[in-house]
Design a protein around this nucleic acid. Structure first.
Length: 416
RNA sequence: CGGGCCGGAGUAUGCCGGUAGUACACUUGCUUUGGGAGCAAGCAGACCGAGUUCAAUUCUCGGCGGCCCGACCA
């Protein structure tokens, strides 16, 4: 992609009154556009990052047998009235058509997925099954805040599983948990899982996946030697105490952001819809249900919060909008520009995703913008590169620069 | 939902009861070219409603919108 053709521009100044680092940087760098409080559009750069995050989530969900579907986000009010959510869920957006028919906007999809499953799951042979989607969610938050971390419209992966027994749900939960940890790891994050109450959502327990970052809203305590982790508000121990589970190490405290959750829904929704299947004896049974969420847009905001430095965004390799930022310091038509053009062609042919800054602007502006955009690797093409064929490769995260001859540079990408 | 602050060119801001000024961005020209350049010219602005006043962008009230703190948070 040639930067001269890229839609959007960077800004020098952060938008007024925007305090959240993720929103400041993503708006300044031209990744997102704010529509209103808690609602953002994703511009080409932002959409690329979000797609990469979604693809990581998609791969991991597919790998554990999840089947991707696409559910409606405009919901019939009847489904919500059936489960009690119409009056019971305060963040539910309710809308009315011009003929005064009522609808809800999806803030979660139990009310849709349960009747879908009901139609196709009629036998114990159809279980277990896990359905998921990646899409928009709408929540009527009283106060949207923290940029894309807590909006009224946001992206989420939500998966729903149905099982014959509680044991089978527990088995599947362990599989999902491992997949979640792989997702966070691939995004460069460290996560812990806590047990929490299910809120008004479920009388059963729920699990929250917490990513360690000072930008979080929750305080947690955890153990490095075992899986112990709890919300500090309800924990029986505090930092420095011996771990209550393994006794091997002392508990640590940290700030964290909730980046995923799992709810043991029991039979609440199947019961509400009268969803049963026939067991081996031909008797009607009600399935056990679980749901599993990961906020994709929140994950994107978390990555900005965790990795950004004073110069701008720093993307982990696996989610960056481009792998390489090729910065030409030449002016269109000169030898430097021709050298950069040729390298751009070769890298693109090699399958490398390159953002090529081919604009006729000054070097300082290009470097400042490059730092702001946060692409992991920068290749600088200056006078030296044009004459010697040696290119300067700089890591955005570490700032370390290395000089590589053209052939070696190309080979390093072909290996990958 | 309770409390606070705010609302002006595309963006960010200074001053002000009576010519709305500056910077960046954008357009044109010249110079410059390895860390957000310089000069010159140009384009472009008061959220809505009511009230006070000779006169309101400025003061008052209401609405709408934004941000922050708290509460809330599937």
């Amino acid at each position: 992609m040639r930067q001269s053709k890229l839609f959007t521009k960077t800004r020098r100044e952060a938008p007024a009154g925007e305090v959240a680092k993720n929103a400041q940087l993503l708006v300044r760098a031209g990744y997102i556009h704010k529509e209103m409080a808690g609602v953002y559009s994703y511009l080409p750069l932002g959409r690329r990052v979000l797609t990469r995050i979604e693809n990581i989530v998609r791969e991991e969900m597919d790998a554990i047998g999840g089947q991707e579907i696409r559910m409606a986000t405009l919901h019939p009010s009847e489904n919500w009235k059936t489960t009690g959510g119409w009056d019971g869920v305060d963040v539910l957006f309710k809308i009315q058509s011009r003929t005064e028919k009522e609808y809800a906007l999806g803030q979660s999809e139990e009310e849709i997925v349960t009747p879908i499953a009901q139609e196709f799951v009629t036998s114990y042979k159809d279980l277990p099954v896990a359905l998921y989607q990646i899409g928009q969610k709408y929540r009527d938050e009283l106060r949207a805040k923290s940029g894309i971390m807590r909006g009224r419209e946001f992206g989420m992966k939500d998966m729903y599983s149905f099982h014959q027994t509680q044991e089978d749900f527990e088995r599947f939960y362990q599989i999902v948990k491992d997949a979640y940890f792989r997702i966070y790891k691939r995004c460069g994050l460290t996560a812990k899982v806590t047990e929490a109450s299910g809120g008004n959502f479920s009388e059963k327990i729920s699990y929250e996946f917490m990513v360690l970052t000072d930008a979080g809203e929750d305080d947690i305590v955890f153990c490095n030697a075992c899986e112990f982790c709890a919300n500090a508000e309800v924990a029986q121990v505090k930092a420095g105490d011996v771990c209550p589970r393994c006794g091997k190490e002392n508990v640590q405290a940290a700030r964290a952001v909730e980046a995923g959750n799992v709810f043991d829904l029991g039979q609440k929704y199947p019961k509400a819809f009268g969803f049963t299947y026939k067991d081996k004896e031909g008797k009607a049974q009600t399935p056990i249900m679980g749901c599993y969420g990961i906020g994709t847009t929140r994950l994107m905001g978390t990555l900005v919060e965790v990795f950004a430095d004073e110069k701008g965004i720093v993307w982990p390799e696996n989610v960056a909008p481009f792998a390489v930022h090729l910065v030409s310091l030449g002016q269109s038509g000169d030898e430097v520009a021709k050298t950069a053009d040729a390298l751009y062609e070769d890298l693109t042919k090699a399958g490398v995703e390159v953002l090529y800054d081919d604009r006729d602007v000054r070097a300082g502006e290009k470097f400042a913008e490059s730092d702001l955009l946060g692409i992991p690797q920068r290749i600088v093409v200056g006078k030296d590169a044009a004459t010697t064929g040696v290119f300067e490769v700089v890591s955005r995260a570490t700032g370390v620069a290395t000089n590589m001859p053209r052939a070696e540079l190309l080979a390093s990408y072909i290996k990958k």
